[in-house]
């Protein structure tokens, strides 16, 4: 056990968007049993993840790679008898982890794409040509300026790129 007081961490989670229902959990294991990832690897078990969080194991939860192994399929959330919004709780935990600097490379890539192009998958010259060949209309550009304003208003840029005003 770390020094973390379980209740503090629990309250931190329940006060976040997505994390509200974590305390409903009574550890029945339905989530683990229905989880496609848990069926594939021992590295991930949503029931244990929630257990760790409720016991206040903040570091183990937020610093490890477990929270990034959820495939967001929502099977667990759908079938949870206590209406724990498991997938949403994991989003809340990821949101917290990101703020503490636990940012997997692929997520940095996504954020960079979003900030610069307004899209996660930038279009290539090759695809642009292909589109014309198929008779598809040219892809309309995203309004990156408006998006940047929104990302600044939510603090997304700071969350991801830490330094004031920094952007890719």
């Amino acid at each position: 056990m770390t020094e973390e007081k379980p209740l503090d961490f629990t309250r931190e989670i329940t006060s976040r968007l997505g994390g509200e229902t974590i305390t409903h959990c009574y550890q029945c294991g339905t989530c683990a049993s229905t989880c496609p990832v848990a069926r594939t690897t021992e590295r991930y078990n949503p029931r244990q993840l929630i257990r760790l969080a409720l016991l206040g194991q903040r570091d183990e939860v937020l610093k490890g790679d477990t929270i990034w192994l959820c495939a967001s399929c929502y099977n667990c959330q759908e079938r949870c008898p206590q209406k724990v919004e498991v997938a949403d709780v994991i989003y809340a935990l990821r949101n917290m982890a990101i703020r503490e600097g636990n940012v997997p490379a692929i997520y940095m890539e996504f954020a960079t794409g979003l900030m610069s192009e307004g899209r996660l998958a930038p279009i290539s010259k090759f695809l642009e040509k292909k589109r014309t060949e198929y008779g598809l209309p040219p892809l309309k550009p995203a309004n990156v300026e408006a998006l940047k304003i929104i990302l600044a208003a939510t603090g997304f840029d700071k969350i991801m790129f830490k330094k004031e005003g920094a952007s890719p």
Binding site: S33, T34, N45, R47
Partner: peptide, 29 residues
């Protein structure tokens, strides 16, 4: 088995039911 099954699946080939459950004490599905 300590664990609440998530699904009961029917295997038509053997006319058998499969109960999917996590044995929490073994941490095994």
């Amino acid at each position: 088995v300590k664990g609440r099954p998530s699904e009961i699946v029917h295997d038509p080939a053997t006319n058998t039911l499969i109960v999917e459950v996590e044995d929490e004490l073994l941490r095994r599905l």
